[in-house]
Write a protein that binds this DNA or RNA. Structure first.
Lengths: 188, 188
DNA sequence: GGCTAATTCGAGGGTGTCCTCGACTTGTGG
DNA sequence: CCACAAGTCGAGGACACCCTCGAATTAGCC
């Protein structure tokens, strides 16, 4: 597996392709034409395929790093003194991340991105999430039957709200999320 | 506008096409290939276009009638003695309708279906919805800042949850909806 | 039955995307 | 600076879908 170093021009093209993919997927979602990405990177379609034989490989090369932000959000949430605050901020932070990037939103909404790196990245994020949820439940501020899977469901739900409204009413998803979170909170 | 009666074979084909469209859109969503619909109807693609010059025309010929069920659901909700019960049943009924039909789910989730008939059908349904919401608010069982638009947002949200889970976990959307509704309810 | 207008048919041209492959170009180690 | 491996290029075949249009077929009226 000792991948020998890329030639200089190859490394440059690879970087240009990744940057272009982030942009184009971010604007158009994960179904964007690969040829658009190649053109944006000012590189031939053949070169794109030389680096990323499959759309999935390209996607897997992009999103794990973008998901790493979740770690920070999760860590901040755990550090928050108020367990409810921590939970709510974590959820809102996650959704805000989705709202920034159509490609990421797609990636989360559909089930794809099942690569090793992605699941391990998710794994860390999910580990945080698990603890954040537990802490809130222990403090009696989160309804006791809330589970990690409910967070996934929420993510799906938010993805469509975002798709429909983020471009025209950037705060509409926040209102929906607030209502939902209000329902999760218990007296404590 | 006095559309003269169709020839017998034409009427038959039109009916076959509509039935096929309901099936195919229901299975594959509104992006299904029109050629699939023609084939399912055992009719040539040219005939499909003769009857429905546009995908939109075909869609508009299908969904208004399917949306008519909303009237009944709304009427039943208004007839319910308990205002909260009425509201919750209405919402659940609406979402259950989405869950039954991928095409309908698509139609609701995206903004399309802006035909006259559709908006008038929606209009009636939305009129009911408005009253159902108002009644629940007047009874003090629904949070006071809930609005009709929030119902639309919910519909978007549910559409993705349904897409992702209805085939494998048919009740997952109900759990999510329950949490959401719990958050909307007030002491009364 | 025969005529005509209504209806149906499906081959085919257009478009957009995927992906391959052989010819060309270029970086780099010796 | 040269040779060769590594990398790039883009035309083009395959596919799926869109939609049109002239020829072939029929339903319904007399």
């Amino acid at each position: 597996m000792a991948t020998r170093p890329l030639r200089a021009d190859a490394a440059r093209n690879r970087a240009k392709l990744l940057a272009a993919a982030v942009d184009v997927f971010g604007e158009q979602g994960l179904d964007a034409a690969l040829e658009h990405i190649a053109r944006r990177a000012q590189v031939s379609i053949g070169t794109l395929y030389a680096h990323f034989p499959t759309r999935q490989v390209l996607i897997d090369s992009i999103f794990p790093s973008r998901l790493a932000v979740l770690d920070d959000i999760g860590a901040a949430a755990l550090a928050a003194p108020d367990p409810w605050r921590g939970f709510a901020d974590f959820v809102e932070g996650t959704v805000a991340l989705q709202a920034q990037d159509h490609g990421l939103n797609d990636a989360i909404a559909r089930r794809l991105v099942p690569s090793e790196e992605a699941t391990s990245a998710c794994g860390r994020g999910m580990g945080h999430a698990e603890r954040i949820i537990q802490r809130a439940k222990d403090a009696g501020v989160l309804r006791a039957d809330f589970e990690l899977a409910d967070l996934v469901t929420l993510t799906w739900a938010m993805s469509q709200v975002i798709r429909e409204s983020v471009d025209t009413e950037p705060d509409r998803w926040r209102r929906f999320l607030r209502f939902y979170l209000d329902g999760l909170r218990t007296a404590g």
